[in-house]
Design a protein around this nucleic acid. Sequence first.
DNA 1: GTCTATAGCACGATAGAC
DNA 2: GTCTATCGTGCTATAGAC
Lengths: 205, 205
Amino acid sequence: MMTKPLAKSAVSQKRVLDAAARIFRDYGYAGATMRVIAEEAGLKAGSLYYHYQSKDALIGAVLDVGMNAAIEAMNAALATLPPEATGRQRLEAAFRTHVATIIANGDYSLATSRVYGQVPAAIRAQHEKLRDHYGLIWRNILATAQRHGEFRGDVNLTLARLLILGALNWTAEWFKPGNRSIDDVARGFAAIVMDGIAVPAGTAS
Amino acid sequence: MMTKPLAKSAVSQKRVLDAAARIFRDYGYAGATMRVIAEEAGLKAGSLYYHYQSKDALIGAVLDVGMNAAIEAMNAALATLPPEATGRQRLEAAFRTHVATIIANGDYSLATSRVYGQVPAAIRAQHEKLRDHYGLIWRNILATAQRHGEFRGDVNLTLARLLILGALNWTAEWFKPGNRSIDDVARGFAAIVMDGIAVPAGTAS
DNA sequence: GTCTATAGCACGATAGAC
DNA sequence: GTCTATCGTGCTATAGAC
């Protein structure tokens, strides 16, 4: 079965979107000009408006595409786990998937995290639903494991989730392929969050 | 003993800097215009150039002032700990100090974290020394505690530091005074990083 | 679909009055 | 120290040819 070839329009549209992600990432929302985005996509500035109505529409598409990729990857990863998977296994899979997605779609992830605070409020408000949906997936993983007695009852799960997402999202800024693999990072982070870095009390020295 | 009154110039300069931090935070590097910064400071655009040579000099000052405040607060906090303080106590104090500084200087912290990737490379390069210095303080806290056998030997301290700073720096984006206090957040985060969220193995259910 | 050309506006920075 | 006025440049977006 052959993959249906994309229309010329769709190909260009994707090229524009990828170019926009890179330029927004490097220059911020206001600093990314339609001229430079067009050049990065191999077009002239005026031609962008055939694919996207405005600069606002373009940044909105970058935000949504990146977040949808993260949601789909996470749903797919969790769906492949057996029903009897432990909370620990689920959380570790979520760590791995989140980091892998963030690195694979690095241009979109970094563009999003760097420009989010500068995007017009109307665009941000419309995007918020996807963000909240993604947050809910994490809430569920943590709450389920705590309810099953795998995570301590005295841990504030909201705080735990904010710690986890803050730490994982920052990987997009510092991770460089080469020495450490994505799996190393995810496993290392998961180990710290689940077991801590301190020598457990009552351990022989 | 009276505090020496500041010269009119110094007062204005500080007002300009505070205004710049707020505007850079909200509009990004390119989106923050000298006209708007001036208005926020109660001046006209041309008057800014009496205090700062250029927009680049202004963002450079915002970055440096914010980071120097963090370094000084951390040094002061660690200096008040008794010499016999444990690694756990030092780490908890560092968590508390970092979050408190970030929230107290929220305009500067958020401006820095949001525009850092968009600032001209020359400005960023000059600021890097302060960043590295701050990172070194954290490296020392973690390495010392591990050398003393308080933190597990199999924990990768670089990974731990990246997790900690990613999580702590993100607090600037979501923390709102009201329900949770800064100390609650710092204590909660420190507890997770040191002891984990999982129920320890061998614990009776 | 992509181009050129341009309208209308805002930018950073400077000069010189006060 | 702060102002007004302005230079030269570059911005988003549109119009219409190809």
